[in-house]
Design a protein around this nucleic acid. Structure first.
Length: 827
DNA sequence: AGCACGCCGACT
DNA sequence: GTCGGCGTGCTC
């Protein structure tokens, strides 16, 4: 080709790129591409850019254009990192959606999405100029001298190093001084954090690959039996596999490293290094052979049938109904069609058998992705998903960010779990919802599975947006536990209550212990007494921050606030009137433990709540002691309902279900039902039917019966229609706004004003500032304002209004220092 | 996120 | 006087 061809033209064009920086910034920045890099820039690749004075970051190219920004001169990019885009088009779309939907910055999403290993680290490095001679008349300060001396023994120092050497934080004046005096310069070093793991492999040198030479070698090695042994082991291994690692050879040949070294010295063997996977090998091709039960098969067919019309199906299957097998079949079908599958699990579930079972079933083509893995491993999984080596990925919420290419199916197990919602750093996303959107981008299907579905998923299923499939029987003939609701009022009348326990519950506990089986008792309050109250004047100690009653903890002898962690020593005399009649009202796990030990002095009882597990390893120790049957009875708060599997528990008692059913909002009532259903489903073994005893006052019997009869979803209906009656929109988009400040009075004032401002814009649908609760984290007070926008107001509209109000608000001089976090929780 | 700049109080 | 604290604003 001669003359002006296209390529030459492209090279002459000046390109500008919009990049996302991995920082929480309100907008993206535009950089200029030097001609020589024109051919390399592409959307989805990373670039090295200088941002600010002397910081270097890797940013991601969001778009490429040839129009220069009008007002400012764009900086040049330093380099292009990737040969190929590491972010797919769909991922960028997901990021976009997330920034809008959860009201955060693109940089927040990028930081959350990329494993740290793909974000390059930059370190500012100070280097001594080799030929530097101070100009005449230049005097160094003492601190400058110290730094210069340090640089002479070690010519490269980071800012942190200088800070350490001088023993002070502010080092910039000194470094600037040295820069001005021409003694040092700043070098920026971008370090790629990911290093592949190299492993040593052994191979026979090419000379001995020849049969004749090899035969002669046997003769030569006759006098060195260990070396001969190594050679034989090598040849044997070579028949089975094409590469042989150093370890394998040493292990198989019982020759020491000495013998191997001599073979290397004699150039019989060669060592070469190559990158290997850090991940555990699951090459054992053990196949779980199972047949679906009729119920499972029916559910599977129904799901696939629903998929014709619907993109999302809610699978409501009772505890132990064998949802995993259904997932496996669905995954199999998706893989057969050449697709990739994402299997989302709550964080805690990732360490349990379900992962192992699926891993065994699908072998090498499966990846596991969650926070316990280090950066290198995460990058490795990322790459394997990108190049399609992994067909199935099991992961916690952050796995929605992986670079899928052929996504066909997403399974969200335990769909109701709150750990799918990221709480603190932005982006505060709900991974289940993000998964639905991700699937939409890939035209993939979604199964949401749960024994206790979330209210929003049920709502979507009921409204016809999602399909609904139900399994009502347990898998493999395991019987549902016998469930019995005991009336506390009636037992009291009959004088059968002993402390907090009904006669029936005590009998059952005794019976269970006799049979060397275990008991879990559930009481959803911690501490000893819920309230202390003066019998004479009615005074009750309250938290100084939160305006809630303090709970008495006998173990610590203190009064604790369960909201903010505030505590003070307990009282025996009423501080208001001096009376000695201070009564205890309400009871928690500590009290249950104490009372129970009086009735069963022989039994070994332990307690599982936030207090008893506060010490390091506390939780693990309590659980393993119970699993090893060193404890007979475990008393716990809702922690006992969370995915714990004990195989010898045949009795579960709910001490007081009424405390569970007192709910101020629909989130709380949802959680109550879930907890109750989870607890009630957990008793029993494969070979023995379990028992569940639920104690409650009469008014709540109907609700409890319905929950345990697994008319779980009907409960939602009732609640929803009740709310409709009161003209209280059952499904609102909630926008939580946390406002933080160090000064609680100012915060109270500001949140009132903020809420009023919002009301003026949004028409009276703002709640929260009236609530007395002000939580305290570190030295900040936190107040929550909640916007309930019903479906008549569009979410983008509410958001833009909200942004406006926040900006306006933060501009006010009185309220500076106010930290406003927005958290959208939409339905 | 850094980092500079500017404004204040407490010290050689 | 200036060192060092923190609040504020900016980075293409």
């Amino acid at each position: 080709m001669f003359g002006f061809d296209d390529e030459e033209f492209v090279e002459r064009e000046t390109l500008f790129i919009e990049v996302i920086l991995p920082l929480s910034l309100a907008k993206n920045y535009i950089y200029r591409v030097p001609f020589e890099l024109n051919g390399q820039v592409a959307v989805g690749k990373r670039v090295v850019v200088q941002f600010g004075k002397n910081k270097i970051y890797t940013a991601l190219i969001k778009s490429v254009s040839n129009e220069a920004p009008g007002i400012y001169e764009a900086k040049y990019i330093i380099d292009v990192v990737d040969a190929y885009p590491i972010i797919t088009h769909e991922q960028l779309e997901l990021w976009d959606w997330m920034t809008l939907y959860y009201m955060c910055n693109e940089g927040d999403v990028m930081s959350a999405a990329l494993p740290a290993g793909l974000k390059l680290a930059s370190e500012t490095i100070i280097v001594l100029k080799e030929d530097a001679v101070p100009e005449e008349g230049v005097v160094f300060t003492e601190k400058e001298e110290v730094v210069l001396t340090a640089l002479r023994s070690r010519p490269r120092l980071t800012i942190d190093d200088v800070s350490a050497i001088l023993g002070q934080k502010t080092v910039y004046p000194i470094i600037n001084g040295l820069l001005d005096k021409g003694m040092v310069y700043i070098a920026e070093e971008v370090v790629e954090k990911y290093k592949p793991l190299l492993k040593s492999f052994v191979s026979l040198s090419s000379f001995y690959q020849d049969e004749e030479n090899l035969r002669q070698l046997f003769g030569i090695l006759e006098k060195a039996p260990k070396q001969l042994d190594a050679l034989l082991a090598y040849l044997k291994l070579f028949k089975q596999q094409d590469v042989i690692s150093k370890e394998e050879l040493l292990e198989d040949s019982n020759c020491g490293p000495g013998a191997l070294k001599s073979l290397l010295d004699k150039e019989i063997f060669k060592i070469y290094k190559r990158p290997v996977s850090r991940l555990r090998d699951h090459s054992d091709d053990f196949i779980l052979n199972f047949e679906l039960s009729a119920a499972q098969d029916g559910a599977l067919k129904k799901i696939e049938q629903e998929f014709v019309e619907k993109d999302v199906v809610l699978l409501h299957g009772v505890t132990a109904s064998g949802k995993t097998q259904i997932y496996i079949k669905l995954i199999e079908h998706a893989i057969e069609k050449g697709g990739q599958v994402l299997f989302l699990l709550p964080e805690i579930a990732l360490t349990t058998q379900i992962v192992e079972r699926i891993q065994r079933y699908f072998g090498d083509s499966i990846g596991v992705y969650h926070s316990k893995f280090n950066n290198n491993e995460r990058v490795e999984i990322w790459n394997k998903v990108l190049n399609g080596k992994y067909r199935v990925v099991l992961g916690a919420r952050s796995a929605v960010f992986l670079p899928f290419k052929e996504l066909k199916l997403i399974v969200v197990d335990e769909e109701h779990e709150s750990s799918y919602k990221q709480q603190d750093p932005a982006p505060r996303y709900q991974a289940r919802d993000a998964a639905v959107y991700l699937a939409h981008l890939h035209k993939a299907k979604v199964v949401l599975g749960s024994a206790t579905p979330s209210i929003e998923s049920y709502f979507n299923a009921k409204g016809g947006k999602y399909g609904l499939v139900t399994i009502n029987e347990r898998f493999g003939g395991v019987e549902l536990p016998l469930q019995e609701v005991i009336s506390i009022s009636e037992e009291t009348k009959k004088k059968k209550m002993v402390s907090y326990f009904s006669g029936k519950l005590i009998d059952e506990i005794a019976f269970t212990l006799e049979h060397k089986e275990q008991v879990i008792l559930f009481q959803n309050r911690r501490g000893y007494a819920t309230i202390l109250i003066c019998a004479t004047c009615g005074y009750a100690p309250k938290c100084v921050n939160c305006d809630v009653s303090l709970t008495y903890h006998k173990t610590s002898g203190k009064l604790h606030c369960h909201y903010c962690g505030y505590h003070q020593s307990s009282i025996n005399i009423c501080p208001a009137c001096g009376s000695v009649h201070v009564e205890q009202k309400g009871f928690g796990t500590e009290r249950v433990e104490e009372e129970l030990s009086l009735i069963f002095p022989e039994a070994k009882i332990s307690r599982l709540d936030v207090d008893s597990t506060r010490t390091k390893n506390g939780l693990q120790q309590i659980i393993s002691e119970f699993q090893e049957k060193k404890t007979d009875i475990l008393i716990g708060t809702q922690m006992v309902a969370k995915g714990l599997d004990f195989d010898n528990v045949t009795l579960i008692g709910v001490i007081n279900a009424d405390t569970l059913l007192n709910y101020p909002d629909f989130r709380a009532f949802e959680r109550s039902y879930q907890l109750l259903a989870q607890v009630a489903g957990r008793a029993g073994r494969r070979d023995k039917q379990g028992k569940v005893i639920i104690q409650a006052y009469d008014d709540n019997h109907r609700i409890i019966n319905q929950v345990i009869e697994n008319k779980y979803l009907e409960m939602y209906n009732e609640e929803l229609s009740e709310r409709r009656q009161f003209n209280y929109p059952p499904f609102t988009r909630l926008i939580f706004i946390n406002i933080k400040h160090k000064d609680s009075d100012l915060l109270n004032m500001a949140s009132q004003k903020f809420a009023n401002e919002l009301r003026a814009h949004l028409g009276g649908r703002v709640l929260g500032p009236e609530q007395p609760l002000v939580a305290r984290v570190r030295n900040y007070y936190i107040k929550q304002v909640i916007i309930k926008s019903d479906k008549t107001t569009s979410l983008p509209k509410v958001k833009s209004l909200l942004k406006e109000v926040i900006l306006q608000f933060q501009a006010e001089k009185d309220f500076r220092g106010l930290n406003i976090q927005v958290d959208v929780d939409p339905y």
